[in-house]
Simulated assay, not measured.
Amino acid sequence: MKTITLTPAQIRGLKLAKKGDLFPREANKWTHRDASITYAKNDRFQERPQKIKFLTSATLDTLLEFGLLRSLDSDGGTQEAAHGITMAGKMWLLKNK
């Protein structure tokens, strides 16, 4: 069995995909469907927004090549279709991080 070595950005992208399906955004970024700026739970006055987590198209393509993510659209429109994590991606996260 071939071991896959991922960069920290690819690991963050895989963890983001584990939390939910990824949808395209502007400027070659992918994130959750209804992602919005949130505030820290321990911040009483909600003054410090937490940024939306995203991954780039290049990272997405690399994870697709490794078979850790898959397109949820079976028709083949991979550029605009949502993407989800595969069982191989979940197993990689369990073994490595």
Score class of each variant (00 low, 15 high):
67 G>S: 02
10 Q>M: 07
48 R>F: 01
23 F>T: 13
8 P>V: 04
20 G>C: 02
5 T>A: 08
3 T>F: 04
31 T>W: 01
33 R>I: 14
25 R>C: 06
64 L>V: 15
22 L>W: 01
20 G>N: 01
18 K>F: 11
60 L>Q: 06
76 G>T: 11
64 L>M: 11
20 G>V: 09
35 A>R: 09
15 K>A: 05
13 G>C: 02
26 E>P: 09
53 K>E: 13
21 D>L: 07
44 R>H: 09
46 Q>G: 06
81 A>L: 08
26 E>L: 09
40 A>N: 13
23 F>E: 03
86 T>D: 03
67 G>H: 04
19 K>N: 10
74 S>F: 07
66 F>W: 06
29 K>C: 05
29 K>T: 14
55 L>T: 14
42 N>V: 12
26 E>F: 05
72 L>T: 15
61 D>V: 15
10 Q>C: 00
5 T>M: 13
77 G>T: 14
51 K>G: 11
80 E>N: 14
12 R>A: 02
49 P>L: 01
30 W>A: 00
38 T>F: 00
47 E>W: 10
21 D>R: 08
25 R>G: 04
20 G>W: 00
66 F>E: 03
82 A>R: 09
81 A>V: 13
18 K>E: 08
71 S>K: 09
26 E>T: 13
86 T>C: 09
5 T>Y: 07
35 A>H: 02
38 T>M: 06
6 L>S: 02
69 L>D: 00
14 L>R: 04
85 I>Q: 01
75 D>K: 15
87 M>N: 11
67 G>I: 04
61 D>T: 15
65 E>T: 15
33 R>T: 10
32 H>P: 02
56 T>A: 06
82 A>Q: 09
74 S>W: 08
46 Q>M: 12
83 H>S: 04
70 R>K: 15
85 I>T: 08
86 T>M: 05
7 T>I: 09
58 A>S: 14
34 D>F: 07
54 F>V: 13
63 L>R: 00
14 L>A: 01
38 T>L: 05
58 A>D: 10
25 R>Q: 07
25 R>P: 00
89 G>E: 01
72 L>E: 10
39 Y>A: 07
41 K>A: 08
52 I>K: 08
41 K>V: 07
9 A>L: 07
66 F>M: 08
19 K>C: 09
30 W>Q: 04
56 T>D: 02
59 T>C: 05
47 E>T: 15
11 I>E: 03
65 E>Y: 05
66 F>Q: 06
90 K>E: 10
61 D>Y: 12
66 F>K: 14
50 Q>C: 11
66 F>I: 11
68 L>G: 01
12 R>G: 00
2 K>H: 10
53 K>F: 05
3 T>Q: 13
2 K>T: 15
8 P>I: 03
4 I>H: 01
16 L>H: 04
79 Q>Y: 01
